[in-house]
Simulated scan of single mutants.
Amino acid sequence: MPLSSLLGFAGVALVVVLAPGPDTFLALRYALNRPRNGVVAALGMMVSIMGWAILAGVGVAALLLKYPAIHQGIAIVGGAYLLYLGLGSLIKAQFLARSTAATARTTTRNIALTDEIFTLGQSLRAGVLSSALNPKLGLLFLALMPPFIPAGSPMLASALILGGIFAAMGFSYMMILVAIAARAMAWFKSPSVGIWLERVSSGALAIMGAVVLIGAFI
């Protein structure tokens, strides 16, 4: 592939990667539980990103143009999933906030809040589903990627190269977020800070889910 195509797609990918989105908040949420959970969640996201790249390479974009209901279905399921994650965590945060201040200061409460451990399997599954059901990523790969593939180039191989570029950039950015979260763990283990952080991240996921759902019907 010509260097101009690679650099052009990398520029688009950089904008998408740096824009706050569901994947960003999900990676932070799992990283604040345990840094390695954030790493595994990010790996799950990259698996789905490469899946989107493969779909673009085999020509699924044309199928979605012909049957837009498929894309709408992905958006509806993705929005509902984000809404479920966000509201579920928000309800948990509200429940913890109602605990007495004395109980919230105990070691038991601290552990219950910050060390209610997600398994690596849960983290991986959440990352895979987050990116697999993200309609914006679908739009990026299925609609915006093909123009960066020169005529005559092998579609699947080119799509995998571009997908690899996006995955490498996305994973690097996620690792920066995970590193920041790991260094700030001591501060985040404060019960009051942890509850507010859970509220903010959960609320952001719920809002994004609602926006995706509304967008699917407009």
Rank of each mutant, 00 (worst) to 15 (best):
G163F: 05
I117S: 15
L133Q: 01
L129N: 05
P135D: 02
T114N: 12
F148Q: 02
F118W: 13
I76C: 05
A143C: 02
T114R: 15
T103F: 15
I111N: 08
A179H: 09
T107H: 09
A80M: 07
H71F: 14
P146K: 03
A93T: 12
G138M: 07
Y84R: 08
A93R: 04
L96Y: 04
P135K: 03
L87S: 11
K92R: 12
I91S: 09
L83P: 04
L90T: 11
G170C: 13
L162G: 03
I76M: 15
T107V: 04
G88S: 15
F148T: 03
G78E: 08
A157T: 14
I149E: 00
L124V: 08
I117E: 14
K92E: 14
L90S: 11
A101E: 14
T103C: 08
F95G: 06
L139H: 06
G78K: 03
L140D: 09
T107G: 08
T119K: 13
S172H: 05
L96G: 03
A181D: 01
G127D: 10
I91N: 07
L177M: 13
R98V: 04
N134P: 13
G73I: 09
L85N: 08
A80C: 07
L144K: 07
F148H: 11
F141T: 05
S131E: 14
A69D: 05
F166A: 08
S131W: 11
F166V: 10
E116H: 15
P154R: 01
I149H: 00
M155C: 00
A80D: 03
G152K: 10
S123Y: 02
I111H: 10
L144H: 05
R98E: 14
V178E: 00
L139Q: 09
I161G: 02
F171Q: 02
L129Y: 11
M145L: 15
I149L: 03
Y81N: 02
T107R: 06
S99H: 05
F148K: 00
L140N: 05
I91T: 11
N134C: 15
I91H: 07
G86V: 07
T107Q: 13
P146I: 04
M145I: 00
V77Y: 11
L96M: 09
N110P: 00
V178F: 04
T100K: 05
G79V: 07
G163L: 04
I180N: 03
L90Y: 14
I76K: 13
L113G: 05
A181W: 00
A159N: 04
T108W: 07
G88A: 09
L160T: 01
A157K: 05
A97E: 09
Y173M: 14
L142M: 13
G121N: 12
P135H: 07
T119E: 09
A168F: 13
D115R: 15
S131L: 14
L140R: 05
I76E: 07
K92P: 02
A179W: 10
I176W: 03
S89H: 15
A159K: 01
T114M: 08
F171C: 02
F171T: 03
T114I: 03
A112K: 10
V128M: 01
F148P: 03
V128C: 00
A126H: 06
F118E: 09
F95R: 15
A102T: 12
A104H: 01
M175D: 01
S158T: 08
S172C: 10
L120S: 11
P154F: 00
R98H: 13
F95D: 12
L133E: 00
S131D: 15
K92H: 13
S172Q: 06
T106I: 06
L96S: 06
F95Q: 14
A112H: 10
G73M: 12
